[in-house]
Design a protein around this nucleic acid. Structure first.
Lengths: 341, 341
DNA sequence: CTGAAAGCGCTTACAG
DNA sequence: CTGAAAGCGCTTACAG
């Protein structure tokens, strides 16, 4: 079943014995056209359920009114908040959104960018796959159409980037632990070369340094993907140590929740013996008990802002200077760490 | 910054002193074209980074290779599994996916369908907004292009529908509770006229009936949206009764988790005193302790199958008979109910 | 105030 | 084996 019954300008024109040009102008409320004609045309258009073929329109104007979005993994709560923000803002501005998943695969990510161009999107919003090492495909895309990096970004790509200040957010999270009396703070981070993980680690280090706490390599743990599973595994590792930590900062909520589950299993009091702080403010962070202290990253906002800057670049006639836009985060203190009074 | 540096057939043609037609045919490996020409063309195309403009291609063929998807709320774990399945299958078949959110608003949903048509999608996958009462906009869309309902469906729309058997899934969930010795089973359902909720309620009733358990109106509770909040509220209501239930079947995981939290607060033993069963197998169902017994609905599968049937309809020259496709669910027994040995 | 014509990038029946 | 021409649905400079 192909598309059918779709009214075109041609039909309206022949029905009314007018030219296609006139019908087009009438529908677009062009000043040249007489009121009478306009009325005739619009009323018939309504009757025939005419909707302009944006496809044809865009084809002529070299514009699709479609924004392409590439994310590593859609089935991630935080990703869906990003998409929500993107879609809402895009809609406000009259754009549709094509979504693709790179499934955290660099090669796939390149292909996605390629097809986005083929599909004629007007601009691309990209959140990098975890494994992105080579960026030439991205640079090539950047030559063709506006592209903005959001959330998972990289300094290797000279384009506008919308993100949170991971370093600062992590700094405050760890600072919070220190202020509640914790002195031996473990971190669970990513072993791979992810920008976000690196920055969070840097924030951790800075917080320790600025409070004159020595870093201890033995409680700086990494895993390739920071899942609940690995959170559990690494926490078990921490608990097997002589000199246990009195707090754990996990750079994802999943790992933090894994940590909490393991601590509970070992009947360790949270936060008295060991406090836990996560990152993301996922849905699950209020399901786990004790509820998780975590960094809230406003996904909606990031998505929204990314769309705004992208459209700005799309509308600009000149190449704009790349900008770095930081969206504010917020530490939400819950029961897995002490409150400061 | 508009699109630029995009190579077209025209450029390749003039560079090679060939006609556009020949270049087009060479690139499409048409048998008429000599090997020599083909080689010349493809190698230059590669050098110039030529990618076909699918937009123009589709425009000519009245085909966009885009599937439109409308969902009530993207920031829902289950929804994102649906989308994952849809995107994966669509990609395999060479389609892109445009996603829109109706934010559970009937009017918005109508508008989304409208713009989907304007954007020239080849087919639409629709999961209904909770409040969908009038379906004329949908019927109108159905006149124009293939449309399939998935997940949140309605019998009022005469089209192919892909879903789980809510009635049966609920039946087995309640049956499971009965088999573990529970006799007074409360249900937390939706008050609004949602197809899914109705069916799950029906399964609940059938399970009781087939086990000769009388229904008791006082433990059949409804709320407009079945959130964790409302799960808590309604569970408190149950606990205030003289004759408390010995199990709660909540038609969403959120409500079930709210129930568990409330029961724990009141130090009620789960599942000994009151067992809980949810619906969806959300991420959170394994975060909460005790882990939640719940119905697993394979979102990926539903999305995948929906795409397959949609493409089938898109490719068919005749109007196909509407089908109803049931995707199997699976009760996952965890710690919030007894295991049967 | 209205129309004929060109053109967006591509494919394909028709000629040669 | 290759090319000229038409056409997909629309807009818009150019005529009248």
């Amino acid at each position: 079943m192909t598309k059918k019954n779709i009214t075109t300008l041609k039909e309206i024109a022949s029905e009314l014995n007018l030219s296609i040009s006139t019908v087009s102008r009438a529908l677009n409320d062009h000043p040249d056209i007489s009121l009478k004609t306009k009325e005739k045309v619009t009323s018939l258009a309504k009757n025939l359920n005419y909707v302009p073929n944006l496809f044809a329109k865009g084809f002529r104007a070299h514009k699709s009114n479609i924004i392409g979005v590439v994310v590593p993994d859609i089935a991630h709560y935080f990703t869906s908040t990003l998409l929500k923000g993107i879609m809402r803002e895009a809609e406000l501005q009259g754009y549709k959104v094509i979504v693709s998943e790179s499934v955290n695969n660099e090669k796939k990510q390149g292909e996605m960018l390629q097809t986005m161009i083929q599909f004629g999107v007007d601009g691309i919003l990209l959140s990098l796959a975890r494994t992105t090492l080579k960026v030439d495909e991205i640079l090539k895309t950047l030559n063709h159409i506006p592209l903005i990096l959001f959330d998972k970004v990289s300094l290797k790509v000279p384009c506008t980037q919308v993100m949170i200040d991971d370093e600062e957010a992590a700094f405050y999270a760890v600072e919070h632990l220190i202020q509640t009396g914790k002195k031996r703070i473990a971190i669970i981070k990513e072993s791979e070369d992810s920008y976000n993980s690196q920055m969070r680690y840097r924030g951790y280090l800075r917080a320790l340094r600025s409070n004159n706490i020595e870093t201890d390599e033995s409680i700086i743990l990494s895993s390739e993907n920071i899942s609940m599973q690995n959170g559990k595994r690494l926490t078990n590792q921490l608990l097997s140590m002589q000199n246990k930590p009195d707090a754990i900062f996990a750079i994802t909520d999943s790992a933090a929740i894994g940590a909490i589950k393991t601590l509970k299993k070992h009947k360790i009091k949270i936060p008295q013996e060991i406090a836990v702080v996560g990152f993301s403010n996922s849905r699950s962070s209020i399901i786990i008990e004790p509820k998780l202290t975590t960094v809230d990253q406003p996904g909606n906002k990031i998505g929204e802002v990314a769309v705004q800057y992208l459209i700005q670049e799309m509308n600009s006639t000149t190449q704009l200077e790349p900008k770095t836009i930081i969206v504010k985060t917020n530490l939400i203190v819950r029961d897995s760490s002490f409150k400061i009074i």
